[in-house]
Design a protein around this nucleic acid. Structure first.
Length: 511
RNA sequence: CGCAGGGUGGAGCAGUCUGGUAGCUCGUCAGGCUCAUAACCUGAAGGUCCCCGGUUCAAAUCCGGGCCCUGCACCCA
């Protein structure tokens, strides 16, 4: 069976995990979990990009080897994944043998095919920065003092014939509207492709950069950035082996808008084309989290620390917030006030309080046993009908990656359940000695419990632990590989089950 | 300059592709309820959908023009 294969970008080992890393992984995880619940065999890949100048430099500064640095940094990234409940199936490091072997294999093939050639590169080199400068680095037509001596040198390097694939790529993007999501991003790429693109320099001489994968056909060089990093998407699933066919093409490459152009929308498709492979189905491009309207960046120092929120409010609350707030593709502001508003409002008052009041009532009026649903009056029918509509909408929204809308729809159901309690008023019915009122009371509790189970089930991709916990509290289990098409159907499966005592899932917090 | 995104009741957003009662959350005001996390439920007020022009029976939505905000330095999802 073909896998549903999705990837995040691999994180660069020269830094700590931040908001963007957390969001991208959560987004991927939500999609992965949803697909699993739809019966897909999901393969979710993430990983670490370990080579390159920055890593080499940082390691030197700290007096350790680059590999030691990576071995250390990876702990932070994996730890973040664990804390966020990221259900990746594979984690690739670009220093692993399986990756290096594929990179060298691909390079060799493309070299033999004539897609890679040796050429002279002439430019202005700054020994202090250990890199070439560009025209835009000039200030008032001169190189800035602080860069020290600048020398014009020419250097031989290997190039990939990117330019020859440009016409093909333009028509591919034009003919495949789903290739880049959201669609407006494709326009940007086409805009970029309007002007001539240069062939891509893919090597660095070992004297300048030792921390990389040597070119198989010329060991004096290592391969530079993209022919290393991008290939993780195929090296991790056994490129060259038989099993590769079970995974490729990827359903989603999930990336930030910064690495769409040119890396993922230009280099990668052309590389794949050169390799004779199919294109990934969709590049899913998300925007950036801003802090009070400003870009979050290490240099400005206004970085939101996701793990602080996870620690205080739980991973699922954090997952809920980022999924509820950000329309995929747009930028979105992260502010503490908004977080607390969502937390107290949606999670505490609406969902958490619903759980709390229902469990209280079940304890008080039904000895913690979920009673029969015997009556079926207009109110009950309306509620069930509403769930039919909502569950369909939610599934549609999940499929279309409109996750904030999926959650909004689910919350309609939460509110309807709270409203239903108000209409039926079990606390009134409990005072009556009429047998019919007793049935009404029982039915009300049973209906609310089932409604809550359905909401929790549909919420599972976004809030896996909370969903499971609510179901557990209602006396049933919820597996991560259960079948949504079954579990989202209104049922009587809770009847007779013993429930947990009252609990507070999301204690209110002060601003 | 160019490119891209955005400009919708007090705040934050959806709706724009595929024209047809302007929707959601929060906030405000009034009321209800007491099972519940001072929660929940009901009702109300509040909008020239940035501006101008065009197409159309009909425009937030399509077309033309203009204004304003943001991003396109290193780092970075």
């Amino acid at each position: 069976m073909k896998h549903f294969y999705l990837t995040t970008a691999i994180d660069y080992a020269n830094g700590k995990p931040h908001m963007g890393h957390a969001y991208e992984k959560i987004l991927a995880d939500v999609i992965a979990r949803y697909q699993r619940l739809c019966g897909q065999k999901v393969h979710f890949l993430t990983g670490l990009d370990e080579h390159g100048q920055k890593v080499q430099q940082t390691a030197e500064k700290e007096g350790i080897t680059p590999q030691q640095l990576c071995d250390h940094v990876i702990l932070d990234f994996k730890n973040m994944c664990d804390l966020l409940h990221i259900s990746y199936n594979d984690y690739i490091r670009t220093t692993e043998r399986r990756h290096r072997a594929v990179v060298r294999d691909v390079l060799q093939k493309l070299f033999e095919k004539g897609d890679i050639y040796l050429s002279e590169y002439r430019g202005f080199y700054c020994p202090r920065l250990e890199q070439f400068l560009q025209k835009k680095d000039k200030v008032k037509g001169r190189w800035p003092e602080e860069l020290g001596e600048i020398i014009e040198i020419s250097e031989s390097n290997y190039f990939f014939r990117l330019s020859s694939y440009r016409p093909w790529l333009i028509s591919y993007i034009e003919e495949h509207p789903n290739f880049i999501f959201p669609r407006f991003r494709a326009r940007q790429v086409l805009e970029f492709l309007k002007t001539e693109v240069n062939d891509l320099c893919i090597s660095r001489p070992q004297e300048r950069l030792a921390w990389g994968i040597p070119l198989p056909f010329d060991e004096r060089y290592v391969t530079y950035v993209w022919f290393d990093a991008l290939l993780n998407y195929v090296s991790a699933i056994g490129y060259g082996e038989e099993r590769f066919e079970d995974y490729w093409p990827a359903n989603f490459h999930i990336i930030g808008k910064d690495i769409l152009t040119p890396a993922h929308a230009v280099y990668w498709p052309c590389m794949l084309k050169a390799m004779g492979l199919e294109m990934p189905k969709t590049l899913l491009v998300h925007g950036w989290w801003l802090a009070s309207g400003e870009k979050m960046s290490k240099s400005v120092g206004n970085v939101i620390r996701p793990l602080d929120y996870v620690r205080h409010y739980g991973a699922d609350a954090f997952r809920y917030f980022v999924m509820r707030e950000m329309m995929i593709g747009q930028d979105c502001d992260f502010s503490h006030e908004r977080f607390v508003a969502r937390y107290n409002g949606d999670l505490g008052n609406d969902l958490g309080n619903l759980v709390s009041r229902l469990l209280h009532m079940l304890q008080r009026y039904s000895h913690r046993i979920i009673p029969q649903m015997e009556l079926r009056e207009t109110e009950e029918r309306v509620l069930q009908q509403q769930w039919q509509d909502i569950s369909q909408k939610v599934s549609k929204f999940y499929r279309e990656l409109a996750i904030p809308m999926a959650l909004e729809s689910l919350w309609e159901m939460v509110r309807s359940l709270n409203r239903f309690a108000e209409i039926r008023a079990p606390w009134q019915l409990a005072k009556s000695s009429d047998g019919r009122d007793k049935k009404k009371l029982e039915t009300t509790l049973a209906i609310m419990a089932e409604g809550l189970r359905l909401v929790a089930t549909a919420l599972q991709p976004v809030m896996p632990k909370v969903s499971q916990f609510i179901c557990y509290a209602l006396g049933v289990s919820l597996a991560e590989d259960s079948d949504l098409s079954q579990d989202l159907v209104w049922s009587h499966r809770l009847v007779g089950h013993r429930v947990e005592g009252p609990m507070v899932l999301f204690p209110r917090v002060k601003m």
